[in-house]
């Protein structure tokens, strides 16, 4: 059951990697910019008189700091998610051991 789950999981993760790398090969002349600026530009073309009325309290000074913070976000998430999975695996095998000892 576990073996089947691992194989299915690997196949699905492979598909995820495939989906997110295909565009890199398919479209050559793009930087894959993630700027939310295009929506902002679109707003300007629809309503040229619109001016943003608020600004971010704080902005990362540059790309490096920004990627650091995005990384940190993913790291915090991974720590909790996989720490949790580890805890669940551990408590399961501990319970099994207790069960065997009781027999």
């Amino acid at each position: 059951m576990i073996r089947k789950h691992i194989i299915t999981s690997l196949i699905l993760i492979g598909l995820v990697i495939l989906i997110s790398t295909i565009p890199l090969f398919l479209i050559q002349d793009s930087e894959f910019g993630g700027t939310d600026g295009v929506a902002d530009e679109l707003i300007q073309t629809i309503d040229a008189s619109y001016t943003p009325w608020a600004e971010s309290l704080w902005e990362p000074p540059g790309g490096e700091t920004e990627s650091l913070l995005f990384c940190l976000q993913a790291v915090i998430g991974s720590a909790v998610l996989f720490g949790g999975i580890g805890y669940m695996v551990g408590s399961r095998s501990w319970e099994k051991k207790q069960g065997n000892a009781g027999d």
Binding site: L26, C71, G77, S78, V80
Partner: peptide, 20 residues
């Protein structure tokens, strides 16, 4: 763990077929 999953996924900016 559900919140953590949200954290991870929204940190990952993936390339898409639209070139962005």
């Amino acid at each position: 763990m559900s919140a953590a999953y949200c954290f991870i996924l929204s940190a990952l900016k993936l390339p898409s077929v639209t070139g962005s």
